[in-house]
Amino acid sequence: MDVVVSEILQKSESEALKYKSIEVKKHLELEYDLGTLLAVDNNDFESKFLRPDKREDYFLNLARDNTQLLINQLWELPTERVEEAVMVKLPPAKTLLPRMKPVPKPKSLTKWQQFAKDKGIQKKKKAKLSWDQQLQKWIPLYGFKRAQAEKEKNWVLEVPQNADPNEDQFAKKVTARSENVAKNELQRLRNIAKSKNVKVPRVGVTNPDNASSKELQTAVTVAKASTASLGKFQDKLPKEKEARGVADITPGASRKRKLPPVAGHIEKKENLEILDSILNKRPKMNIEQAVAKQIQSTKMDLSDNNHHERSKGGGSKSKNKMGKKPKGGKGQRSGGKNSAGRKRR
């Protein structure tokens, strides 16, 4: 028995000697990312092999050694057999690679979806075909056959009781339908704008026939503010309310007052902010005005001097011929009787 074992051992040993070994020695261990079949060798190159004539062989050997190490690692992973092939299960990749496009964001709900969710309204499934009593046949929910059936059914339309008898009821129906389509499209666009956080300009009241009371109220408020005096002299109806959320387009309208701050420290902070804003304000200097002022004052001085001289001389007619309107002294002291001495109050 012993003899057999030793024989086998010897045989395998000699067989192993026949083949080249799979072992590789490295200074530093390689870093592996088996998920991407990646091995990083952080060992330094041996500079003597980097000469152009030896370089290729060196790279080949290096690559061989490192591939061998990588494959040694791979062969240790759990395997499974799939249709005659041995598959090895790879761990998830460690290397972080950038994505091509950003992570998809969850789509925001439309206004209706949000409403339905809040109210717990569930979508009901409608049957694709329904039995029509009048036509005595199955008609689909939508499609050209539906349209045909509608046409067949509505070959005559009743004129409502207090409607204009000359009005074309068919044309009315068509416009109502097209308006409905337009409204839906508008709502779709509004939903898109909402989901993308884009501000859309308000469209006003599109159709007074089916506008909501809110929309009408807005229209009234805006119209009232659209006078030359920003609606200051417009009368109010007894129970009229002002529309909200139109402050930016109705400049004269009263806005809701802010409540005073609740806590003391907030009030203090706000007051300090006001104080800061005042103290930090640099005196606004309008250079043009300042220059004009300076020129004016020098002129005044000059003219004053001239005046004195001329008054001494007697005639003061030439002053008015300068073309400048007299400005009433503008705080300049006229050389009157009180020109000298203490200022009295």
Binding site: A16, Y19, K20, S21, I22, E56, R64, Q68, W75, E76
Partner: peptide, 14 residues
């Protein structure tokens, strides 16, 4: 290539 053990011996060819 065969190596005598389970893991094969790797040889490369450019």
């Amino acid at each position: 290539k065969k190596s005598g053990v389970r893991t094969p011996r790797v040889e490369l060819e450019e």
